[in-house]
């Protein structure tokens, strides 16, 4: 029952998103014909333009276009990309792997590094290491990603010439693993450096919150060592909220990845989204937006589910709070 409700909410959210994107894209200035016909579009006569628009179905009122798109979409037909003139899924399939590599690996790195760094900072609370990490983190998380990207490109690609400045592989080189890895270093650094600190800081504070709890005092007064208290008790209490935060973090990191891709001309979904929005490649834009939206909504739902599942207290506590007289 609950799962059904959630599925319904998910579908409704996607429907609203698709309508919003559909309308906004068509109201935005720009010439969709340019992405289909390229430079030819500029030389067309008004009659030819009208004919071309009719061919692409762009001459109808927006709601009619939307309903037609929706009907096709429900049959699995999301149309063709104006620019690439092939099925949108084919275009996306070619790029998704790259993004998954950059974003997925970035997420795993952020997740584990933040956990380690957070524990380290909590352990050395208020000592130099903790202070440096917190200060550096505050500065780094304030730096915009595109600026950091340009800075790194300038240093490592332009001055030092040790790393490539753009792309996912070198031209000519068929994409050997080493070459791909070299291309990943700079974008990956930006993705991780932009997000790591916030989550490390969050796990540090959560741990310290737990350290101040009474049960730690009891554990200490029974003679338990600091290490076992931190790992066995505090971490276990802090992990559920960390997991749910990290589930919400997926969309943020995804957004960061898109920006980084664009700056590094990395052929992933981010660059593709940027292009499709820039050149009014409506069908492609729709699918990319829906795909990103689905990830965001799914992650939020996952976070909620994680919260409820892992920590049975939340359910029990809700019940207790309602009855408890003393508040």
């Amino acid at each position: 029952m609950r799962a059904l409700k959630r599925l319904l909410a998910f579908l409704i959210s996607l429907l609203i998103l698709s309508a919003a994107v559909f309308w906004i894209a068509r109201l935005a200035p720009g010439d969709p014909l340019a992405s289909y016909y390229g430079e030819r579009a500029e030389k067309m006569s008004p009659q030819q333009r009208a004919q071309a628009e009719a061919d692409l179905g762009l001459d109808r009122p927006i709601h009619v276009q939307y309903i037609r798109w929706l009907r096709n979409a429900l049959h699995g037909d999301f149309g063709i990309s104006f620019k690439y003139k092939t099925d949108v899924w084919q275009v996306i399939r070619g790029r998704a792997g790259n993004t998954l590599l950059l974003g997925g690996l970035g997420f795993v790195l952020i997740f584990s590094l933040a956990l380690g760094l957070g524990i380290l900072c909590a352990w050395f609370e208020d000592r130099p290491l903790d202070r440096i990490v917190c200060k550096a983190g505050t500065v780094l998380s304030c730096v915009p990603e595109f600026w950091l990207s340009l800075l790194l490109i300038l240093i490592f690609a332009v001055y030092l010439r040790v790393l490539p400045s753009s792309g996912a592989w070198s031209i000519g080189d068929g994409g050997s693993a080493g070459d791909r890895a070299r291309h990943l270093i700079l974008p990956m650094t930006v993705v991780v450096a932009g997000h790591l600190w916030y989550y490390a800081y969050m796990i540090r504070n959560r741990l310290l919150e737990e350290v101040r709890a009474d049960y730690v005092l009891l554990a200490r007064s029974e003679g338990l060592a600091k290490r076992s208290i931190l790992f066995r008790h505090c971490l276990r209490n802090a992990i559920p909220s960390y997991l749910s935060i990290m589930a919400i973090a997926v969309p943020h990191i995804m957004g960061g990845t898109y920006i980084v891709e664009t700056v590094f001309s990395y052929p992933g979904l981010g660059t593709l989204s940027y292009e499709s929005a820039r050149y009014q490649d409506y069908n492609l834009l729709m699918v990319l937006c829906l795909l990103s939206g689905a990830v965001v909504i799914l992650c939020n739902m996952l976070a909620q589910a994680v919260n409820e599942r892992i920590d049975p207290r939340i359910r029990a506590r809700q019940a207790v709070e309602e009855v408890s007289d003393r508040g």
């Binding site: 009474d214 049960y215 005092l217 009891l218 276990r236 209490n237 920590d311 207290r313």
Partner: peptide, 12 residues
């Protein structure tokens, strides 16, 4: 300690 609600680890 005073408060038995908080002096036990809730996850064990």
């Amino acid at each position: 300690f005073q408060d038995p609600m908080t002096s036990l680890d809730p996850t064990y």
